[in-house]
Amino acid sequence: MTNHELLAGFLDRSLSEDQLLELEARQVADPAFAQEVKEMLTVERLLQQDPPRVAYPVGFLSTIESNIAAKIAVGAASGGLLGFLVHNVWTWVVGGTAAVAISGGAIYLATQQDEPAPAPPIEQRIQSAPSQPSVEQTLPEQSTPAAVAPTTTRVSTPAATTDRAITIDAKTTAPDPVLKQLVAEYEQSNATSDHVRSAQYALLLGRRFRADGNATEARSYLESAVRHAQAVRLADYEMDAHGELGLLAKSRGDIGGAVRSFEQAITVGRAQKRNVVRWSQELEAIQQ
């Protein structure tokens, strides 16, 4: 073993007892090597004790952490929603297929009788379709941060043997499982002061209510999204929530409000070096 190999092993604490004895013997025999070992030990101590001190941008690191955690949480949530929807779609597909098979069987049997029976009315076939229980559900009121007006979704499916037509209110035909899920997720995250998730869900709900034309709920959730985002410095969500408020104001003809919201979105985005193109374009469009 060379002196340097011994020295390297010594500094890495990987020498055996015999090798350590060898190192000591060589230091005794060679004062220059002994000096080198001492100096290397000083360097080693300095390196271990003195990593460069960095003024870490704690706020920046925290923002990045929150933003990516938010992406992960949203991914997990949408995966959950997707699974939920997929499950429901399959329920309908399987139920529908069974219904068609049963109806087809019934038609076949009827046509085999001496006196041909009329084909079952379409309503009856629909009634025997997927086993969907009667659902009348009121979404719970939101206590914080914005109250969501109780929304009643009603689907009544009469028994297959009755002749009554299915009563379906066109506006509430399909219970909105996504909306329910989002509200539930928002409530849960808000109850645990999880501002990151709350901001995500509030923003999603705000967008959804805006798209559905429910301006009051949209505004409540978007304003909540702003507050949650500000609480944990989630610039992306804060910016988008302001932008969505601008779109909401624009859709209601409140040009002044829209301009203010778009400007806020741009200000927040620029302060955190985010891409503000979308909101700049919206602002330009509204000012023209």
């Binding site: 990045i64 952490e65 990516i68 992960i72």
Partner: peptide
């Protein structure tokens, strides 16, 4: 699993 708390621990 999309576990954001695991991410935060790892990030830190």
């Amino acid at each position: 699993q999309g576990d954001d708390q695991a991410f935060r621990t790892l990030f830190k």
